[in-house]
Nucleic acid binder design. Sequence first.
DNA 1: CGAATTTATGTAAGCGCTTACATTTCTCAC
DNA 2: GTGAGAAATGTAAGCGCTTACATAAATTCG
Lengths: 345, 345
Amino acid sequence: MNRKLSDTYRNLPTLADVARSAGVSTATVSRCLNSPAQVQQATRDRVLEAVTTLGYSPNFGARALAARRTGTIGAIIPTMENAIFARAIQAFQEALHENGVTLLVASSSYSPENEADQVRTLVARGADALMLIGHDRDPGIYEFLERRGVPVLVSWAYDPTQARPAIGFDNRRAMSALADEVLRLGHVRIGMISALAAGNDRARDRIEGVRDAMRAHGLDPQSLHLIETPYSIGNGAEAMAGMMAAPARPTAVICGNDVLAVGALQTARQMGIHVPREVSITGFDDIELATVVAPALTTVHVPHREMGWQAARLLVEMLGGGVTPPPVCLETELCLRGTLAAPSK
Amino acid sequence: MNRKLSDTYRNLPTLADVARSAGVSTATVSRCLNSPAQVQQATRDRVLEAVTTLGYSPNFGARALAARRTGTIGAIIPTMENAIFARAIQAFQEALHENGVTLLVASSSYSPENEADQVRTLVARGADALMLIGHDRDPGIYEFLERRGVPVLVSWAYDPTQARPAIGFDNRRAMSALADEVLRLGHVRIGMISALAAGNDRARDRIEGVRDAMRAHGLDPQSLHLIETPYSIGNGAEAMAGMMAAPARPTAVICGNDVLAVGALQTARQMGIHVPREVSITGFDDIELATVVAPALTTVHVPHREMGWQAARLLVEMLGGGVTPPPVCLETELCLRGTLAAPSK
DNA sequence: CGAATTTATGTAAGCGCTTACATTTCTCAC
DNA sequence: GTGAGAAATGTAAGCGCTTACATAAATTCG
């Protein structure tokens, strides 16, 4: 009972300490913690008591090394400042926690190089699996993950031509449905304010969705007045200003997301252009902002929380069973609100 | 050259493989990776080449076990769905990444039990340090972290009476300054819609701030008509409805945060009560929402990004030097906008 | 030029846990 | 009571890396 002080000073108890204190082997202690059913009730009680008394908690590094997994999943999103990602990540994290998994997060700031870097970082930090946004990235990244045996789940996109596990919605079809609603009201001169399409398959799909609808209504898809701009209210406002300064103003401006649409709305108000009488504006995502502005934004509701929640479920499944689930497609819903009306002839 | 297939199949290269391939010891390889200056240029080049050729990347568990740290910091926030936290966490993560640290996130959903649970989880997942919101929590949590040698940084609160490292702002003083502005305009019947104060020192401080200002203006702080409600636009709206139904309506409603204020604003519009002529409304935080609504919200600007960024800086410093920095107080700023005016007599 | 330093590299002992396999202890049918 | 098989527990070999310490090589200086 008189060991060197340094044996105990700021030295957390180890499995061996617990084993000694409970009078069992380290293997038994380990089993008590990881698969209690394998241990007899009486022994288990004794061990767990020792655990409590000593204030033992397993060393993470040792456990990860021996078990060859960390119980950690990484997510890389463009930015948390975008409410749609924040919302989904929140649900994702909650669902992971319920399954005893911890979330490692990183952001790409919409930069592919940045994202590639983060993939490497998270894998180096022991992520057992990864959740990424969209399919569109350097194939080398998928090869890298494959080689390291790290499963990936893509979210925010549903593309039946891509075989890898994914959970998302059909951006193209959803946007097409919204555009169809706009065109059906009789709009002919259409503007679109989109997020930057480079390296962003969701943005591209939404643009194509609008063009699909135009074709279906006998309009030339080339006539779409398209402006791409980074994600922010200010940029949406600026793009709208440019669009309204053009000689033949569009009577409907379809925006790639709600944030850009709110910017467009601000510009319209500022320029004294009445919405929706003089110009209709639509968004995409259905974030809180959409219902707070006046008039409320016509948009497409995306089940962000559901997506986050299911992403966690799928990932845990993939990790547990080593299975590769097929892509999942969630439904979106049109939200017809105040900013859309027929053009005044 | 004819080992068992299983020797290499889905077996990632190890330090030893690199060492062999470069003709050096494992120690040298390790040094090349962790403190390259200690290794001669020529050797280093040879080793790094081997690293690239083999596609080596260190095993996380082994590294964590041997080095006794993970290069990971945990953050526990109420919820990412709150834009103020999303914004700060984004900055926090970016700053951590620049310092080679990865972020582990968890959320408490404003529940103390939940938070305590998450603290244990993140520590068990190898967080080298923790960032928490507010000082107010079971002392046992601080003891636990102390015992395990995990440094903590509190943010969102500045309270000189608390010695532990913190970065935040003086919620009480900031709210008092805003309330002072309101009272100076001549308002006498004051309402307040606050977030739930239990277990939330920020909310309590803001309430006290309003009372401070009332005292300073010779009003009875007891006359404050206070309603507490969970964080959401809908709850803000509901609380406002209750407040406006009272016999002697307040002429100014001070809200604990912008989200509640936006809800209040919606109710006012819906009830046909003109803002600010019939009732003034103020918020706190200055999130995007505040400038999007009409009229724009009078509020207090909180440097969320700055706070996240500095929190990362401090934490990295604490981890590196083993130092315990003193609490840091950031400045907030009054944003006087359309929702505040003198009461109509 | 050789001793004293300094610098570069190697050796090997852990870090604390999991788990395959070995051993012991029960159960229970006959 | 016995032996076969199941259940509980123990033994000990790693997992892949870092780092204190030992050694060897290069440099400095009287």
